[in-house]
């Protein structure tokens, strides 16, 4: 049997096993799904780079927004984002690393307390970011802040949206990230190293401090970088806890509000009176935000790959 395709006689295909035709289709389909994801990712990043790179100049990075945010730069937003993630990291890393050390080195895996902690970590990671925003407003701003003002006899100082509350909200949001990655890296340290250290007379804490933590450093770093990247990109948790639409000055105190890159993208994209005039600035801001988060992610990925290679080499 031969077929006619585009007016030409085509010789029959060589005989194949009957299961191969659907098999090939299926494999192709799954490959196409993978390709689709890669293409979409490339498309988004490509679109931002193509439209944004001309805007990103030194003046843009170091200037302040002007003319109702249709001209000028984004330095206040960059500065605010940096302050935000630095404060968040200081609050987050000690708790996250401490919790991971406890879970991996001290805890009895079947104890109710351990299971409660693991359950909480798992579910904390699934709480929607907007709910973190509500929590930050209800707890940090309205409760902790107000109580502090009352106790210190101040006018509204702490009891309003502020840099410190936004960072603490983001710290809680990222707690699971740091715990999970730190635990993974602690698990990668072979048991013999702990035993050798203990056998030499070191105490449990000395073993952790001088043997485990240096070994687990890449993992801890990975977690910290991932959470910084996520912290720099999350907008919903800071909407009501401290981010400002526009500020004529840079924040100098933890009780100040701040501008932030992600929020700035949102503001430029949705609240601009003149969409076409804002467009170059918008693309430039997105490009800066994207570069920041993707470079951080890339660093984390490389660190993690090295960590996994170490783990595989040992077992």
């Amino acid at each position: 049997m031969s077929a006619v395709i585009l007016g030409q006689k085509v010789a029959p295909l060589p005989a194949v096993r009957p299961s191969d035709a659907p098999g090939r289709a299926f494999t192709l389909l799954s490959g196409f799904a993978a390709l689709l994801i890669v293409l979409m990712t490339a498309l988004i990043i490509g679109d931002v780079v193509v439209h944004g790179w001309q805007t990103v100049t030194w003046e843009f990075l170091s200037g302040v927004p002007r003319q109702g945010m249709t001209e000028g730069g984004i330095w206040p937003a960059i500065y605010g984002s940096l302050l935000l993630v630095v404060l968040m990291t200081f609050a987050l890393v000690p708790f996250g690393v401490g919790a991971a050390i406890y879970l991996n080195e001290y805890a009895n895996p079947d104890a109710p307390f351990t299971r409660a902690v693991r359950f909480s970590v798992h579910n904390l990671a699934g709480v929607p970011s907007i709910v973190f925003g509500l929590f930050g407003l209800g707890f940090f701003v309205q409760f902790v802040g107000m109580q502090m003002d009352r106790a210190l006899g101040l006018d509204v100082t702490w009891g309003q949206p502020a840099l410190i509350w936004a960072s603490l909200t983001l710290a809680l949001l990222n707690l699971p990230v740091v715990i999970v990655t730190t635990e993974e890296s602690l698990r990668a340290v072979p048991r013999e190293m702990r035993e050798a250290s203990l056998a030499l007379g070191a105490t449990r804490w000395q073993t952790i401090r001088h043997v485990l933590l240096p070994q687990a450093m890449p993992g801890i770093l990975t977690g910290a970088i991932l959470s910084v990247s996520r912290g720099a990109g999350e907008v919903a948790p800071i909407l009501f806890t401290g981010a400002a639409y526009f500020l004529p000055y840079l924040p100098t105190s933890p009780t100040d509000q701040f501008m932030e890159l992600g929020y700035h993208v949102f503001v430029l994209a949705t609240q601009s009176p003149d969409v076409d005039a804002t467009k170059p600035l918008l693309y430039g801001t997105v490009l800066v935000l994207l570069l920041m988060t993707l470079l951080l992610n890339l660093t984390a990925m490389l660190l993690r790959a090295r960590l996994r290679a170490n783990l595989a080499g040992r077992s």
Binding site: T41, I44, D47, G233, V235, A236, F266, A269, V286, L289
Partner: peptide, 20 residues
Amino acid sequence: PTIEMLAGIPSVVLGFFALM
């Protein structure tokens, strides 16, 4: 890594892309 990149794109950027 491509999918990790996609995961690393902030949601506000995805929103921006959808909008524009």
